[in-house]
Design a protein around this nucleic acid. Structure first.
Lengths: 337, 337
DNA sequence: TTGAAAGCGCTAACAT
DNA sequence: ATGTTAGCGCTTTCAA
C-alpha cells in the first residue's frame, strides 16, 4: 500500500506507481486498450489485484464523455396503474437486468410523473448515455424524447419514428378470439383497455378483425387495465348480453376481475364462459380457475431492447417484433365443459 | 448563444460568460449557495434560462466527491423468485421513486446474482453514494455490505448491525392466526416460507406463538414462496390432516396456489377452509375468492428506507418498525359460512 | 511501446 | 461579494 493515501480508494495513480509505469500505461492495461507490452501488462494487473483497485466510474465518465448507463423510463399517467400496482414493471426490470449482467453498465430508473411528463422527458433526454428504454407512454411523448436523443427504444407500440421492440398485439388478440371460437364459443365479448393506450388499441384491432372474420357480434366495453375495472366491465357485459359464452380481456389484471364477476353472477368459468387474458403475467396463475392468457414476452422484449441500445443497432423507425402465443390454462379448458 | 460551442450542451462557463460573472459566482447561484448579490443572481438565472443550461451531474459528482444516487440491491438466490416473477420488486421500486421524486437523486438498480453474490456486493459497496437499499438477501451478505459501507438499509429482517426498516412479521402472523381463531377455526395449518428467509422465519415464529397461546395443534409444512410450492404444500397438508379448517400462508403467491389446491380437493374457501395470506400484494385481489391478507406496507417501507438514506439518519442497528394489519377479504368471510 | 500533459465540467478553497 | 485557481480521477491526444 506504499504511496497510497490511507482510507480512500486507490486511484489509477496508485496503481501506476505500484507497477512502476505511467498513468497512461496503467489506463491502457485497465481498459484492455492496445499499446502496452506484455511485461507491463502483467505488472499493472498485479498492482490492480494487490491494491484492490476498481476504476472510479464517475471520473471515467467525465473524462471519456460517456457514462455507461441505461435508463428505464416509466410514465405514470394513471395513479391506479403506478409502478407498484402492476407486475409489468418487475418483468421489464428483470429483462433489462438480464442484458446488463456482468457488463458493467448501470440501470437507472426514471419516472416521468403525470403532472409534467414533458419537462421530465426533456430533462432525462439530456442525460442519456447508452440510451433509454421507454416502458410505456404516449406516442407524442416518445416522439419528443426520440427527437431529443435518438437513443431510445420503446417497449410499446409508439410513434413511427421511434425504434421499438413490439409484441404482436393484433395477432395475439386475433388468436385469442380464434381460440375461443375453436372451442365452439360464438358470443365472444371483449373488455378493451384504455382508449389512448397503444397496446390496448392494437388488441382492439385484433379483436375486431377476428369477429369480422368469424362473423361474430361485436360485444365490447372499455376497461382501464385494473382488476376493479375488469370486474365492473364484465358485469356490464353480462347484463347487456346475458348469453355471452366467451370473453377476451385485454390484460390479465382485468381478466382476474372478470372471472370473479362472472362467478358472482352464478356462471362458471370455463363451463359457461371461457375467458382469455393477455400478458401471461403472474396474475394468470393466481386466478381460480387458472387463466388462459396470451403470452407477452415482456422479459425477452426488455432484454432485446437493452441489447439494441448496447450495440447501438437502432435506426429511426426500427422495429423488432415478438410473437404473442397462447398459453392455455383452465379458464378455457375443454375438460370442464 | 454567444461564445457557446455549437452542438454541445452549454457548460457553466458558457453561463458565466453570458452573465458576465465568474464561474464561481455562477456555481453559487446555480447551487443556491450563499455569496452572491441579488443583481448577479438575476443575471445568472437569466443566462441559465436563455442557454437552457442544465448542470452536468457527472462533473458535479466528480468535483464534489459525491454522486446523488440511491442503489436498490436485489439478491437473486432463487431463480424461481427472480425479479420478474414477483410483484414485490414493483412495489419496492414504487416506494423508492416516491421518496426520490423531484429531488434530483437517481435510482440505480443492482442485482447480485446467485453465483457470486459476495463479490457483487463488494463491488457495489465501493460505489455507493447516497446509500443502498437491500430488498432481500441473507443477514451474512447484509452484514458484509454494511461493514464495507454503512450506508445501507435493509427492507427485510437482517443482521443486528444493519439498519433496517422492518415490518412486524411476527405480529402479523400472530394476528392472522388470531383472526382465523376468532372465526371459530381450530385446526389452523401453516404453509411456511423458505427455511433461510428471514421474513419467513419471523412469520413462522408468529404462527407458533399463536397456536401456543390458543392451544392449537401445530400443523405445518414448508413452502418456497412460489405459487406452485403453495399448491403442493396445501395438498400435502390436506392429505395429512383432512379436517383442516384454516390456513395461514406465509405469502400471497403461495396462498393463491393453496386456494386452488383446496378447491381441487372439493373443499370450499372460506366455507370449509378459511385462508389468510401475507403481503397484500396484487395477487390478493386476483384470487377467487379474494384473498384475506396481512398487509405488508412495502411501498411505505421502501419510501422510509430511502428517506433514511437521504437524510443520513441511520446508525448501526437502527430499526424502524411498520405494523402489519389484516385486510379482510372473501377468503375468510363470515357470510359464506 | 511508453510517458507527459491537457483537459472533461464542475466544486470548493483561497484570495481579493 | 466576487474572482482566481487548484483539483476530483480518469481518458486521450501528442511527443518521444
Amino acid at each position: 500500500m506504499v504511496g497510497m493515501t490511507y482510507g480512500s480508494r486507490p486511484t489509477i495513480d496508485d496503481v501506476a506507481r505500484a507497477a512502476g509505469v505511467s498513468r497512461a500505461t496503467a489506463s491502457r492495461v485497465i481498459n484492455d486498450a492496445p499499446g502496452a507490452s506484455g511485461v507491463l501488462r502483467q505488472r499493472v494487473r498485479q498492482a490492480v489485484a494487490d491494491l484492490g483497485y476498481r476504476p472510479n466510474e464517475i471520473a471515467r465518465a467525465l473524462a471519456s464523455g460517456r457514462q455507461r448507463a441505461v435508463d428505464l423510463i416509466a410514465v405514470i399517467d394513471n395513479p391506479d396503474l403506478s409502478l407498484g400496482a402492476h407486475p409489468y414493471y418487475s418483468r421489464v426490470l428483470a429483462g433489462v437486468m438480464t442484458a446488463l449482467e456482468s457488463i458493467n453498465v448501470q440501470l437507472r430508473v426514471q419516472v416521468a410523473a403525470e403532472d409534467d411528463p414533458v419537462s421530465a422527458i426533456d430533462a432525462i433526454a439530456g442525460d442519456l448515455t447508452v440510451g433509454a428504454i421507454l416502458a410505456n407512454g404516449s406516442p407524442e411523448l416518445a416522439a419528443r424524447l426520440h427527437q431529443r436523443s435518438h437513443k431510445v427504444v420503446s417497449l410499446v407500440p409508439t410513434a413511427t419514428s421511434v425504434p421499438a421492440v413490439e409484441a404482436d398485439n393484433i395477432g395475439g388478440a386475433y388468436a385469442a378470439v380464434q381460440h375461443l371460437h375453436s372451442l365452439g364459443r360464438r358470443r365472444i365479448a371483449a373488455i378493451h383497455g384504455p382508449d389512448r393506450n397503444t397496446c390496448a388499441i392494437a388488441r382492439r384491432i385484433g379483436y375486431r378483425r377476428a369477429i369480422s372474420v368469424f362473423r361474430l357480434r361485436d360485444l365490447n366495453t372499455a376497461g382501464d387495465f385494473t382488476r376493479e375495472g375488469g370486474h365492473a366491465a364484465a358485469l356490464r357485459l353480462i347484463e347487456a348480453y346475458p348469453d355471452i359464452d366467451g370473453m377476451f380481456v385485454a390484460c390479465d389484471l382485468m381478466a382476474a376481475g372478470a372471472i370473479q364477476a362472472i362467478t358472482v353472477t352464478g356462471r362458471r368459468v370455463p363451463h359457461d364462459v371461457s375467458v382469455v387474458g393477455f400478458d401471461d403475467s403472474v396474475v394468470s396463475i393466481c386466478t381460480n380457475p387458472l387463466l388462459t392468457s396470451m403470452r407477452l414476452p415482456t422479459e425477452e422484449m426488455a432484454t432485446a431492447a437493452t441489447r439494441m441500445l448496447l450495440t447501438g443497432t437502432i435506426t429511426p423507425g426500427h422495429r423488432q417484433r415478438f410473437p404473442v402465443v397462447l398459453v392455455e390454462r383452465d379458464s378455457t379448458s375443454r375438460r370442464d365443459r
